[in-house]
Simulated scan of single mutants.
Amino acid sequence: MYTFGKEADKTGELTSKYSDLTLICDNFANESASKLLVNWSSLERHRFNAKTLDYISSATCEKYFAEHLHFNERESVNDLEREFPIAFGILVYHNFDQVEQLLRLIYRKNNFYCFHVDEGADKEFKYMMQWLVDCFPENVFVASNPVDITWGDVSILKAVLQCMENLLARSDKWKYYVHLTGEEFLLVTNLELVTSLKNLKGANLVEGTSLKPNMDRYPEQLPYDLKKYKSSSHIVLSHEAVEFVLKSQISKTIFGALHDYNSPEESFFAVLQFNQKNCFPENVFVASNPVDITWGDVSILKAVLQCMENLMARSDKRKYYVHLTGEEFLLVTNSLKNLKGANLVEAED
């Protein structure tokens, strides 16, 4: 794996003037485990910063691309990936080399990448991050209005929402939002990720449990009588769900209710996800402006037209409209494709 300050020689072996591997092995053979950990920690903190900063100070983006082939569009990127763009929100605050390698791993020209750079990060890291994203002006950027993150309070959730907002403003083409931090590496390819997300068919990936949630993370009663749920901060949301998070009054009310409690990023999305009746929209919903139906008059037609209107507003991708009542059961599988655009309407003289 290529890292700053290391180059591959003709045999493909990694060489480095800092002899990192020798240092680690010598410590392992001759020093105590605690000494090894101290030395490794020190090595990790200081190994790349000075060298990387020197590199960036003199390198152009063209030079960077020439020396880091992973950023070139690969032949292996297929139409499925190009037609299914993903938005990544990534929280970072240190270790530029690791962040750069993460971007190297997940970068595709059709995806979008928002890096929330902690306001409390050191100025050298901020400088290097800005240099990196400036080489990708079309789809990689630093979040606007960054917050100074304190782990455990609402600042983490604010950072996540800031990237969501910026990604929505940047493009309406992406299909899913994926949350990461600069400490993580994806263990799947972009194609595998696209295939998995496509199979979700608009659903979200949010962990959740209602079993003995940490009570210090919630008010005594949530608004709308919603049930309390706990999750991790790792989420995958559909484009539609992200819009709901940022724009709905329900979401804003829940954010306010959790604002002053511990780790709201681990409860906010779970509360929305698992209280489906009132929260995240899926492909099942109640019609707006329902009418009081009287059988035999125009109210039935009004009810049908109301559902049609709501369905058209929800998505323009549906191929056919099928009308049913709660008294009926379908006894066939989907065969509408065979109609080839024709309609099924009974008629009597």
Rank of each mutant, 00 (worst) to 15 (best):
A8T: 10
G12Y: 13
S19M: 06
I24K: 04
N27G: 14
A33N: 10
L36S: 09
S42F: 07
N49L: 08
K51F: 13
T60V: 13
C61T: 13
F65D: 00
F71S: 06
V77W: 10
F84P: 00
G89N: 03
V92G: 03
Y93C: 10
Q98L: 04
V99Y: 01
L103D: 00
R104V: 06
L105Y: 13
L105T: 15
I106D: 07
C114K: 06
F115W: 09
F125A: 10
D134L: 04
P137E: 07
N139S: 05
F141V: 11
A143Q: 01
V147H: 05
T150P: 00
W151E: 08
V154R: 13
S155H: 13
L161E: 02
L168T: 14
V178P: 02
T181Y: 09
T181Q: 03
E183G: 03
L186W: 12
E192C: 08
E192Q: 15
K198W: 04
K201W: 05
G202Y: 09
G208K: 05
R217C: 15
Y218H: 13
E220T: 15
Q221M: 05
L222A: 09
P223K: 02
Y229Q: 06
S231G: 13
S232C: 11
I235C: 07
S238I: 07
E240M: 04
G256F: 09
F268P: 01
F269Y: 15
F274V: 14
F274Q: 07
N275E: 07
N278R: 02
C279N: 06
C279K: 01
E282D: 12
E282K: 00
N289I: 00
I293V: 15
W295A: 12
L301E: 06
A303G: 02
E309R: 01
M312G: 01
V322K: 08
E328H: 12
L330M: 14
S335F: 14
N338A: 13
N343R: 09
E348C: 14
